[in-house]
Structures are given as structure tokens and as C-alpha cells.
């Protein structure tokens, strides 16, 4: 009886020590869920989801306070990726948050700009160059198309233009029923 207790106790002690060692030695530093969610968001920082940027939205999703269908710039693709990550069912984009639009960039009409710097303060990615009473302009390559610069402009000189399709960003269309085939 004592032998059995000692034997089992010894097995338990050894296993416990091994497990404890393994827990320390082979510790897996997994991405916190917020980072993983944030990496799927388009980083437009537009706030259309109702939060002050992509990071706050990711935090809200992680806390379970926000649904995964509130990101219009990410569109269906982002919703699917989030659903995959979180093991939820994809759902259509929340229409209250806006509609999915083709990628676009802001353009300043430089003849009208009065140099008030209001758009510069609104831009979440510092993609507008300019100074007080100097003409402003947008670095098209850095613009995320968030449209946050449009409402503050007192002279309405900013508008959105779709990103032009060129040889670099052209995509093959999804094949539909093709009409002809070469012999």
C-alpha cells in the first residue's frame, strides 16, 4: 500500500516537474488576438466602423463589442478573413457603415486651396504636404482613400478619384463562359 502511494507520488512528481519545465522552456509566444485582427484590416484609418481607427476597431472586435462586418474599405474579403480567424460565420457588410467602393485617392484642386492646413490635421497617415497659407498637395502613393480630409476643407477643393488601372495593377478577369477557343 505504501509502495503504491510512493510509486504514484513519484510518477506524479516527475510528470509535474517535466510539464512545468516544458511550460517554461517551450513557451509559445502567440500573437495576441488584437494584433492578428488588426493585421487583417486595411489600415485605411477611416473610422467608418465607428471607432477611431483600425487598431481601436480590432480591440473592440477582440473584446466582443463590435461585429466583424463594419469595415467598408476591407469589404467582403476582410469579412471573410476575420470570420476565418475568429471561427465565425461571414455575414454581409453592415449597410449602415457604408458600401464597398473601388479603391480611390483624394485629389486637391490646387487652384482653390487656400492653405488652411485643416486637411493636413485630419489625414491619419500624414499623406498631405503643405504649410499655413501654402498650397497643399496629396502624396497619392500614401493616400489610403479614407475621405477624412474632405469634410474639414472650407473651400471644398478636395475630391476622390478612383485609382487608375495601369499595367501594374491590372488584374485578369474572373473567367466567365468563354466564347471561342483556338484550335
Amino acid at each position: 500500500m505504501i509502495a503504491a502511494v510512493v510509486a504514484l507520488g513519484a510518477v506524479a512528481a516527475v510528470s509535474g516537474a517535466l510539464l512545468g519545465y516544458a511550460a517554461v522552456r517551450f513557451r509559445v509566444e502567440s500573437d495576441p488576438i488584437v494584433d492578428q485582427i488588426e493585421s487583417l484590416l486595411p489600415q485605411t484609418q477611416c473610422g467608418q466602423c465607428g471607432f477611431a481607427g483600425c487598431r481601436p476597431y480590432a480591440e473592440a472586435i477582440a473584446r466582443g463589442e463590435a461585429d466583424i462586418n463594419r469595415c467598408p474599405p476591407g469589404g467582403e474579403h476582410t469579412i471573410r478573413a476575420l470570420a476565418d480567424l475568429l471561427g465565425r460565420d461571414p455575414k454581409p457588410l453592415d449597410p449602415e457603415r457604408g458600401a464597398e467602393k473601388p479603391p480611390s485617392v483624394a485629389v486637391i484642386d490646387e487652384r482653390l486651396c487656400i492653405g488652411c492646413t485643416k486637411c493636413i490635421q485630419a489625414c491619419p497617415v500624414d499623406a498631405i504636404v503643405g504649410a499655413a497659407k501654402q498650397m497643399h498637395t496629396i502624396i497619392a502613393a500614401e493616400c489610403t482613400g479614407c475621405e477624412l480630409c474632405i469634410p474639414p476643407c472650407p473651400v471644398d477643393c478636395i475630391h476622390m478619384e478612383p485609382v487608375p488601372v495601369d499595367l501594374d495593377n491590372w488584374r485578369w478577369p474572373y473567367p466567365e463562359a468563354r466564347t471561342e477557343n483556338l484550335a
Binding site: 488588426e38 486595411p42 489600415q43 485605411t44 484609418q45 483600425c54 491619419p124 500624414d126 499623406a127 500614401e142
Partner: peptide
């Protein structure tokens, strides 16, 4: 997106 996040 990664660049936009860095800039933000």
C-alpha cells in the same frame, strides 16, 4: 496596409 499602419 502595412505602410499605412506604420505611417498612422
Amino acid at each position: 496596409a502595412a505602410r499605412a499602419r506604420r505611417r498612422h
